[in-house]
Design a protein around this nucleic acid. Structure first.
Length: 725
RNA sequence: GGGCUCGUAGCUCAGUUGGUUAGAGCGCGUCGUUGACAUCGACGAGGUCUCCAGUUCAAAUCUGGACGAGCCCACCA
């Protein structure tokens, strides 16, 4: 029975949490294989893998809190529950971090070290980050099955990546082509559309005389090769010019001939309604050139310098050349006027901030609009052999609710994104990542993980976009392409829980990969949480100095309080604003729970639980009934993914009903020897069941008290107690 | 240009399908307790739920509009 000295007045999370987490791990119940037989139906969540680029932030903490609530709740409801952990190698982010460190510390680049040495260095950094992150995840109380931990760049995941690539290649969905891509001249790699960050910049806008036309541009340095002049077919101002007309004119470096092109991509309202195009360095221009089969010429090299076509400017960086070119245009009287107040949108790499220079390059792509016969049976609404495209598949599974997105409004955002999806460029010119499983020998090409037989084969130098491997995450973590028991049991996974900011990057790509490769959806429900912001709603960032580190909060106030501060007072898909005060407030609540327990334990030292409950008075029955009503409400909220509401109900019940009313009113009753026993029974019962319902939210303090309560048939841990509703 | 979200107490935010005196955290006032509680309890101050119009027996909640804040997407050279 409880002894006073074991029950300090103040709950001490620092002392309790490490001990309790060990108890859980020792119990083995994080691993579904160890759960008692009664836990039958599978329930699974794969943890969105944190990047191994540093440490955990509050967004991760929120994710861990939400997912652990779901997992612990479902486990207590009797599901065979798997929550599978892992980390992401985050190719480009990790490599650029290490490259920056290398340059700062030793003034060296990756090329000074060479591929093997450099990768060793990145590997060490990733390992270190991994260890820190995994430790932090444990500190949050996450009931993850560590025995199944995965890494997006380990051997098993490499097998999955290679297999996926090969199947998609053989299915005609992965192809190699010369297309316009986002090129980062400093990092010397392509960057995906989604990783572009647009920055507004005030820049002069030049109106140039181009024969009889006036063309506007913010980028005169790209204009050397412009020999097509494009206008809208319906623009009456230029009706006299016919598609294909050839017009001789004087241009930057002498006489050229311009060809008239009519295309609807031109906005008649903008500038003069006429433009020249640079297909090699602009996406719109590239697309126009493709439509009319126009010539494309490279003006800027991969380092950002002008090529010989620029005449005397060849070899100059574009930024440096621009004013000189303007000067020349002015001297030749080709500059009509300048708009100094033009706001231009500049594409930058969100990883590192470098300016993006579009280039046409030979890259690997996933075709999203190419028709193919669907190779699987069993996906609702699409028969085996039926013609479809990746894009249609992605729309189909969400439209038919085989994947449900919560909150619902994000469905619209998803559809919009998928509808506008272009072929996905998956090759990257960085070293850290999955190497493209393609081999070349002269003109020959062979796709596969192993080097083909015979001499002279060389593997593609490039690596895959990091989202290619994370797109396989729900599959690869369960053992695919092998037909494992895990894959059979836990796929499709039950819920994918993540921040709405990676709906496109990740969620959409998992749907893409899984429906194609397996003919199943990767998950049934997507729950999107908001971004964690500071108390003024600003993004947490180092430069603002408003970063709250989750581990600091856990150290100061405990994991339970940290979790509650992220769970309560937040709505699905809505940003969460967090302050230390808030965490402190929930620390007080955790302490209140502790003292409710402490009171109950001290007043039931002489109470022995019996198989048959003692006869109850009307007041006792009322207390039980009131609790059951509350418990049902909380459960209903959980079923609707209303974590905040569920926790709030229990918060309010425990503090303002159980403590303020039930306990206060019980004090005299417990003095009465005739009524004492029934009241003790009720207090222990209600407290025990409250702890069960609160356990998913605040697992530590509830476990700590549960261990001390006088109960019959007590389980090894509260984790596997049955949900009381 | 398209789309989305938000505008509720001094501050940061909840409010489930429209229904009795609109809630939480922090802050504030008075009193009480200090033998469950870094306290805690009781009571209280403080809100025209941005504004306007509409639907309804009834709206913070639904509809339309205005104003304000923020986010996402997009090929305006």
């Amino acid at each position: 029975m409880a002894k006073l000295e074991e029950l300090p007045k103040t709950y001490n999370p620092q002392q309790a949490e490490a001990r309790i987490y060990k108890l859980w791990e020792k119990s083995g119940f994080f691993n579904p294989d160890n759960l008692p037989k009664a836990f039958k139906e599978p329930f699974s969540i794969i943890l969105p893998p944190p990047n191994v680029t540093g440490t955990l932030h509050m967004g991760h903490a929120a994710m861990l809190a939400f997912e652990d609530v779901l997992i612990r709740w479902q486990r207590m409801k009797g599901f065979r529950t798997l929550w599978l952990p892992g980390t992401d190698h985050a190719a480009i982010a990790t490599q650029s971090k290490v490259e920056n460190m290398l340059y700062k510390e030793k003034k060296q680049t990756r090329h000074d070290l060479g591929r093997t040495e450099f990768l060793k260095l990145v590997g060490e950094f990733a390992q270190e980050s991994h260890d820190t992150i995994v430790n932090q995840i444990r500190r949050m109380g996450s009931s993850l099955d560590w025995s199944r931990e995965a890494f997006t760049l380990d051997e098993k995941r490499n097998l999955a990546v290679n297999t996926a690539f090969q199947r998609m290649y053989e299915g005609g969905l992965i192809y190699r082509g010369d297309r316009i891509v986002n090129w980062d001249p400093r990092m010397q790699t392509t960057v995906s559309d989604d990783e572009i960050e647009w920055k507004e910049e005030k820049t002069p806008f030049y109106y140039l005389r181009y024969g009889p036309f006036t063309i506007g541009t913010a980028r005169p340095e790209t204009k050397f090769g412009d020999k097509y002049v494009v206008m809208h077919p319906k623009d009456k101002r230029y009706a006299q010019y016919k598609h294909g007309d050839i017009i001789p004119l004087e241009w930057i470096n002498g006489k050229i001939t311009a060809t008239v092109i009519k295309d609807e991509a031109v906005d008649m309202e903008f500038g003069s309604g006429v433009m020249t195009i640079t297909p090699f360095h602009d996406r719109t221009d590239f697309e126009i050139a493709e439509r009319h089969h126009l010539e494309k010429e490279r003006i800027i090299d991969l380092k950002g310098k002008l090529l010989p076509i620029a005449g005397e400017f060849a070899g100059t960086y574009i930024t440096k050349a621009r004013p000189q070119i303007i000067e020349k245009l002015r001297n030749k009287d080709l500059l009509e006027r300048v708009d100094e107040n033009y706001v231009h949108r500049l594409a930058t790499n969100s990883r590192g901030g470098n300016v993006i220079e579009p280039q046409i390059m030979r890259q690997w792509f996933v075709a999203v609009n190419k028709e193919f016969p669907f190779p699987h049976a069993g996906l609702k609404g699409i028969k085996k052999g039926q013609k479809t495209t990746i894009k249609r598949l992605m729309l189909h599974v969400v439209k038919t609710k085989q994947v449900e997105i919560l909150p619902k409004r994000f469905e619209k955002v998803y559809f919009h994104w998928v509808n506008n999806l272009r072929d996905w460029c998956i090759s990257r010119q960085i070293w850290y990542g999955h190497r493209i499983p393609v081999w070349y020998r002269g003109e020959k090409l062979s796709c596969g993980a192993q080097q083909p037989k015979g001499k002279g084969w060389e593997q593609d130098q490039d690596t895959l976009d990091t989202w290619f491997s994370s797109g396989l995450w729900t599959l690869s973590t369960l053992g695919w392409p092998k037909e494992t028991k895990d894959l059979k049991t836990f796929h499709p996974t039950s819920v994918l829980e993540t921040g709405y900011d990676i709906l496109f990057f990740w969620v959409a790509r998992m749907i893409l990969m899984t429906t194609y490769l397996l003919g199943e959806v990767p998950f049934k429900t997507v729950y999107l949480h908001g971004l964690v912001r500071d108390s003024q709603g600003r993004k947490m960032s180092k430069s603002l100095g408003n970063v709250i580190n989750p581990l600091d909060m856990v150290n100061a106030y405990g994991a339970d309080a940290t979790r509650l501060s992220l769970l309560i007072g937040t709505a699905p898909g809505q940003d969460i604003s967090l302050s230390e005060d808030r965490v402190r407030g929930y620390r007080n609540f955790v302490n209140k729970i502790w003292n409710i327990g402490r009171f109950t334990l001290l007043k039931t030292e002489d109470f022995k639980p019996l198989k048959t409950p003692p006869p109850l008075g009307t007041e006792e029955k009322r207390i039980l009934k009131e609790f059951h009503r509350t418990a049902e409400q909380a459960t209903r909220s959980l079923e609707r993914f209303q974590f905040s509401h569920a926790a709030e109900i229990m918060y309010h019940y425990l503090w303002h009903t159980f403590a303020d009313k039930v306990i206060e009113q019980s004090k005299p009753v417990l003095q009465d020897p005739k009524k004492k026993k029934a009241r003790q029974y009720v207090l222990v019962q209600v407290l025990a069941d409250s702890l069960k319902i609160l356990h998913p939210f605040a697992p530590f303090v509830t476990e700590e008290l549960y261990q001390k309560l006088p109960l019959l048939n007590k389980k090894k841990t509260l984790m596997i107690e049955r949900w009381p509703v």
